[in-house]
Computed example of a mutant assay.
Amino acid sequence: MIEIGKKQKLIVVKTVDFGVYLAENKNAGQEERVLLPGKQIPEGTKEGDTLEVFIYKDSRDRLIATTKEPLLQVGQTAVLKVLQVTRIGAFLDWGLEKDLLLPYHEQTSRVREGQECLVALYVDKSSRLCATMKVYHYLSTRTPYVVGDSVKGRVYEISDRFGVFVAVDDKYSALIPAREANGKYRPGEILDLRVSEVKEDGKMNVTDRQKAYLQINEDAESVLSVIEEFAGVLPFDDKASPDVIKREFGLSKNAFKRAVGHLLKEGKIEIRDRRIYKKEY
């Protein structure tokens, strides 16, 4: 069976002026054949030869073969460039003559021309090839990484309930859990991460925070910088609500308290009247 969206080895069964017809076997009927246009035919090809081709649909919605190499096949993921944004969605460059449609309802965030986005290839209800940014089910769980490894991950979806969904190396399934997702994230952003857990099913939990003894210095500098933006007087102390702390600092309450404690120990701040003051020297 000729499958759309996949590379296949097919036999040349008929030669015509505008190309050759391919099929799985020499006795295949007309409806079981697919055209390989003349400009795609390798030099010296003759009837009976076997060619490896990719199957997709042309601009008239007909099955067609190509010897060109697409950047992804059905079920695979790849980072593709947005060529055009239209009323029906975005069109992506995937290495073939006909650009790939990324429908609006398959976008986890609106894309713009020139942007690169991580997508998967699927066959829609009309038997057409389309891209989706909802790549969760297409990412691999056969991770080569272990706890403590440093990795790079691309943000592809953000959930208030679960956290920040990340594709490590653009292919492995990972999550920054909501309790760890204390920064500001955006889809498409590439993060330096550390593997904090590898689950039995192969999915990873990751964090963009360093180990506590290293992170505290960075957090303390961040807190001090925000205090300076408040003209040296923060209108609340470390007993403020977690929501206020996350909004102003992008930190959990515990991380904020550790940073404040570190600054107090270094003598850079003081707490009076439920406010935090930067000490002047």
Rank of each mutant, 00 (worst) to 15 (best):
E106P: 01
H137D: 14
Q107I: 02
G148V: 11
R112P: 00
Q107D: 00
L100C: 09
K98R: 15
Y104C: 00
Y122A: 10
V85P: 08
V82Q: 07
L121C: 12
K81Q: 14
E116G: 02
R142W: 03
L92A: 05
A120N: 01
T132L: 03
K81C: 01
Y138I: 06
D99R: 13
V85L: 10
D99Y: 10
E106K: 12
C130Y: 08
H137M: 04
L102T: 10
K98G: 02
K98C: 02
L83V: 06
C117E: 13
L80F: 06
T108P: 00
G75P: 09
C130E: 15
A131T: 08
S109T: 13
Q73G: 11
V85W: 07
W94C: 03
E113T: 14
Q107C: 01
V111C: 04
T86R: 15
L118G: 11
S126N: 13
L101Y: 06
I88H: 02
D99G: 00
Y122G: 01
T108I: 00
C130D: 11
Y122Q: 13
T86Y: 07
R112W: 00
Y136L: 12
D99N: 14
K98S: 09
V135F: 03
V85C: 08
E97S: 07
L101N: 03
V85S: 09
L80K: 06
Y104E: 12
A90R: 08
K81V: 02
Y136G: 00
D93Y: 03
L102H: 08
L96E: 08
C117P: 00
L121Y: 07
H137F: 06
F91A: 04
V146N: 10
V123M: 10
Y136T: 09
L118E: 12
V74M: 05
T132K: 04
L83S: 09
G95S: 11
G114W: 03
V111G: 04
L129V: 08
V82K: 05
C130F: 08
K125R: 13
D149H: 07
G114F: 05
Y104D: 07
L92D: 04
D149W: 02
P144E: 05
T141G: 00
G114N: 05
R87M: 05
P144S: 04
D93K: 02
Q73F: 00
T132R: 03
S127N: 15
Q73I: 04
T86V: 14
G95K: 11
E106C: 02
L80N: 06
R142Q: 14
Y122S: 10
G148L: 12
E106N: 12
R142S: 13
S109F: 15
K98Y: 08
Y145H: 11
V82S: 06
T108Y: 00
P103F: 09
C117G: 02
T141R: 15
G148H: 10
K134G: 01
V82M: 08
P103D: 09
S127A: 13
E113F: 03
G148W: 10
C117M: 03
